[in-house]
Design a binder for these strands. Structure first.
Length: 105
DNA sequence: TGATTGACCAACT
DNA sequence: CAGTTGGCCAATC
């Protein structure tokens, strides 16, 4: 509504199907600003305050690296969630990232 | 109110 | 090849 940016970020992030992941840049690009990927991080940071909560663990950087794991309650949370959904994670990085990569329509 | 930072990405040096 | 800078927008200090 007012915060179109965050709204879109949350909306797209919630649309990520089970066992899929996406990158900040893709979301930002889908929103309209490919360079505002930094804002995605801000949005997801507050995502836990949003209702319903946003699966921020399905959002990784361009390299498939779990850059945001540090912002989770526990650093293992993100990796465990991804593995729990079928996404293999090695060294805080998504394995076969492009394979699990999901692009917002 | 001005300056800094922030879960990024891409280009340049 | 590695480090720095620019860019985007919003929130925090």
């Amino acid at each position: 509504m007012d915060s179109n940016f965050f709204e879109k970020v949350y909306d797209v992030t919630r649309k990520i199907p089970y066992g899929k992941v996406t990158s900040y840049g893709s979301i930002a690009k889908h929103i309209g600003s490919a360079k505002s990927a930094r804002m995605i991080g801000w949005a997801l940071n507050k995502s836990e305050l949003q209702n319903p909560p946003v699966p921020a663990h399905r959002v990784v950087n361009r390299n498939g690296l779990l850059t945001g794991k540090n912002h989770f309650a526990n650093m293992n949370t993100m990796q465990e969630l991804l593995e729990s959904e079928g996404v293999k994670v090695a060294n805080n990085k998504v394995v076969h990232f492009e394979k699990h990569f999901w692009k917002p329509e």
